[in-house]
Design a binder for these strands. Structure first.
Length: 561
RNA sequence: GACCUCGUAGCUCAGCUGGAUAGAGCAACUGCCUUCUAAGCAGUAGGUCACAGGUUCGAAUCCUGUCGGGGUCGCCA
């Protein structure tokens, strides 16, 4: 301790600078700096992405994927063994919509014949389906809302009358809109197009060969498209699950729960769990006809994951509109006495809003992931050319640079906000490369690399890695070292909170601290060799840490920019 | 209607396991490139931390209520 003082009841202690020098000396070249042992010996599964195979990925999926990759990286850095899983939603009515539309209007189009990315082609037919359905039902919906519609079937008739009754009494705009939507849904479900689609789903479940074959073909198109997007974003998986397999799971667990008295059946044969004592509601786990619901397969899949991988923790990266579902799922697993239940965690992230409002795929107001990435890369290129920083780089190096910068801007923009919070995506701001951005952090790294290159190019500095560390440090040097010192804690914090935002904020802190030091203290021009060597080590240490931190966010560094 | 969640500078966000004058970036305005990359740095201006109570020596932070945004309450996934 060098000094202390008391201000307003606070005891301030000033540490001697050799403490910092000692830390710098022992850690500056530690290749595993940032690696912690928080989760040593533990295994965690991170399930993320979970796309539907009827349309291309959009901005919402981008947030999901970036979070998934980054959280997996955080767990690895904290010493966990990690399994990255993708549960692909490859079956259901939404898939059949694309299939029906392609059959009707596709004229045999393929990704090859059109030059379109497979997921975009299938998505195109999903939109065509929705448009056709809208055109077909629009007039009927109007008469139905007016009360002049006759649905087919007693069930629909009863439901329609009930809604009409409520509609007459309703006063609030919101409630009226909701009831009109209900009517819309009824009409849509009775349209010829939807009946055809529902029939196709039944045929799929019955295994009708032509349907299965078309399904396989179109899904393959989608997968090849997804693969390109994943590769570009740096997304990968160790384990794939397909709902066409897992939707059958869970029924035996329902039997088990019935035997244990965790579940109970009603007169119609449907199976339920009563969660009212836990502040929730009664929840259906199996239909009266013995078929599964969403949660049935999630129960089965949870068991499957544990049997296959024996994980201690299981992270579900899923949007916050499913908060209730996961609360129920985790509670069920706990009541079933599963040992892994306490390790289940829902990483519930907020929706991404656009300045124009909400994204709706049915209405086509979505930001396509591929378009978005391309725009960011184009902007990176324009900016680099504008700044005249293309000199001395080959074409291939340049295109790698643009790719890296564009993706860095996108990833950082999305990951720097707390995952739990809803975020606004403003295209103009996201494309900014100044201030709290990915390229700003990359720039700091590239600057340091430039210094280190000239240090090793200069024969008189060849031994900078051996020399002593100066004990008498400047305030800005101390600040930089203090920031570096916090890094391991930040990694642990980010991991235990499943929040890459902690690391993103840290990247900004460290970059800003270093840049201030860089501006005030010269490195290569410093005459005292010991001070110079100390600063080179500090720069090297900073660069290494920035690289580690950026990699946690799934962002690559560039050596020059 | 019930439950969950968010509300901090014009805008986008930090800070939230209670502690010192509430921090950044963008936008606006001033400076700094014949010296290691100006995608940088320094500075000015901008906030009754939605509102009202409560707990506390002390509240942006914890509790209650009100208002406002979003979400969920399907034998959809």
């Amino acid at each position: 301790m060098a000094d202390f003082n008391v201000v307003k009841g606070f005891l301030n202690i000033v540490l001697k600078t050799d403490i910092y020098a000692g830390f710098l000396k022992s850690e500056w070249n530690n290749a595993s700096f940032g690696q912690t042992s928080l989760g040593a010996g533990k295994k965690v599964m991170v399930e993320y992405s979970s796309p539907n195979t009827n349309k291309p990925l959009h901005l919402g999926h981008v947030r999901n994927n970036l979070l998934g990759v980054s959280v997996a990286n955080l767990y690895k850095a904290a010493g966990y063994e990690v399994v990255m899983a993708n549960l692909v939603n490859d079956r259901g009515i939404h898939i059949c919509k694309s299939m029906i539309a392609w059959q009707k209007f596709g004229n045999g189009e393929t990704p090859e014949s059109t030059g379109m990315k497979g997921d975009h082609l299938v998505g195109k037919y999903y939109v065509i389906f929705e448009n056709a359905l809208r055109d077909q039902t629009l007039p009927v919906i109007e008469t139905a809302i007016a009360g002049n519609w006759t649905p087919e079937g007693d069930v629909a008739q009863t439901k329609y009358s009930a809604i009409l009754g409520q509609l007459q009494k309703a006063t609030e705009d919101k409630q009226i809109a909701k009831l009109k939507d209900d009517i819309k849904e009824l009409v849509r479900n009775q349209s010829a197009l939807m009946r055809e689609t529902q029939q196709m789903l039944r045929d799929w479940e019955a295994g009708v060969p032509e349907v299965i074959s078309l399904w396989k073909t179109m899904n393959a198109w989608v997968y090849s498209g997804f693969e390109k997007t994943y590769a570009r974003m740096g997304v990968s998986f160790d384990q794939y699950y397909y709902e066409s397999d897992t939707y059958k799971l869970g029924k035996d667990v329902v039997d088990e729960g019935l035997r244990n008295g965790v579940f109970y059946s009603k007169d119609d044969g449907s199976v339920w769990i009563d969660l009212r004592e836990d502040g929730l509601d009664e929840k259906l786990v199996l239909r009266g006809d013995g078929t599964s619901v969403y949660i049935t397969q999630d129960i089965g899949t949870a068991d499957l994951k544990y049997q296959q991988h024996g994980v201690d923790q299981s992270i579900y990266v899923v949007g916050n509109e499913q908060d209730y579902h996961f609360k129920v799922l985790f509670l069920i697993m706990k009541k079933l006495g599963r040992p892994f239940a306490s390790g289940m965690h829902h990483l519930s992230y907020g929706m991404v809003d656009l300045p124009s409002g909400k994204m709706k795929s049915r209405e086509g107001t979505v930001v396509d992931a591929d378009d978005l990435i391309q725009e960011m890369v184009n902007e990176a290129k324009a900016k680099t050319i504008e700044l005249g920083k293309t000199e001395g780089l080959a074409d291939e190096e340049l295109s790698n640079l643009y790719e890296s910068l564009g993706l860095s801007a996108l990833k950082f923009f999305i990951l720097k906000v707390d995952p739990r919070k809803r975020m606004l995506f403003n295209p103009q701001e996201s494309i900014d490369f100044q201030g709290d951005t990915g390229p700003f952090v990359q720039y700091t790294y590239a600057r340091i690399q430039s210094i280190l290159r000239s240090a090793s190019a200069d024969a008189s500095n060849a031994s900078w890695q051996q020399g002593d560390i100066n004990d008498q440090l400047q305030p800005l040097e101390i600040e930089a070292i203090q920031t570096l010192y916090r890094y391991s804690e930040e990694v642990n914090k980010a991991c235990s909170e499943s929040s890459p935002a902690v690391i993103a904020q840290y990247c900004i802190d460290l970059s800003r601290t270093f840049n201030r030091f860089y501006n005030e203290c010269h490195i290569m021009r410093e005459p005292d060799p010991i001070i110079k060597n100390t600063r080179l080590k500090l720069a090297h240490f900073t660069a290494h840490t920035l690289k580690h931190a950026l990699n946690l966010l799934g962002i690559q560094v560039v050596e020059r920019m």
